[in-house]
């Protein structure tokens, strides 16, 4: 559910506050369902993927990173996954250090 909230927040950040109808039109998810999702109803995987695609299509290379990460999860062992995890974590922490005061996370 944490991930669901994160993806909806990210979507709202990127596209601004839209009406339920607009979100429905943009995502292809029925208006009543959008209403439920916005009020905390648990997302189906397909719905999450729609939001994910909308969010990451906005970032250059974003979707390929997600695809790669999924492929890594399927194909790599724990040690290699741990190394990637550590690398990503450090890279994020470094970016965090370079953030200006008051800058959005």
């Amino acid at each position: 559910m944490k991930l669901q909230k994160w993806i909806i927040d990210k979507y709202t950040d990127l596209y601004g506050l839209k009406t339920l109808k607009e979100i429905s039109k943009d995502t292809g998810i029925q208006v009543t369902r959008v209403f439920r999702l916005m009020h905390g109803k648990e997302m189906k995987i397909g719905e999450f993927e729609i939001f994910q695609e909308k969010v990451f299509n906005n970032f250059e290379k974003g979707s390929s990173v997600i695809e790669l990460a999924n492929e890594c999860l399927l194909k790599l062992g724990n040690q290699k996954l741990g190394e990637i995890d550590e690398f990503l974590r450090r890279t994020l922490n470094i970016a965090e250090l370079k953030r200006n005061k008051g800058e959005k996370k």
């Binding site: 965090e96 250090l97 370079k98 953030r99 200006n100 005061k101």
Partner: peptide, 12 residues
């Protein structure tokens, strides 16, 4: 090192 980075590190 830039001031904002130093500040962030000192804060941490």
């Amino acid at each position: 090192v830039e001031k904002n980075v130093v500040e962030n590190i000192l804060y941490k």
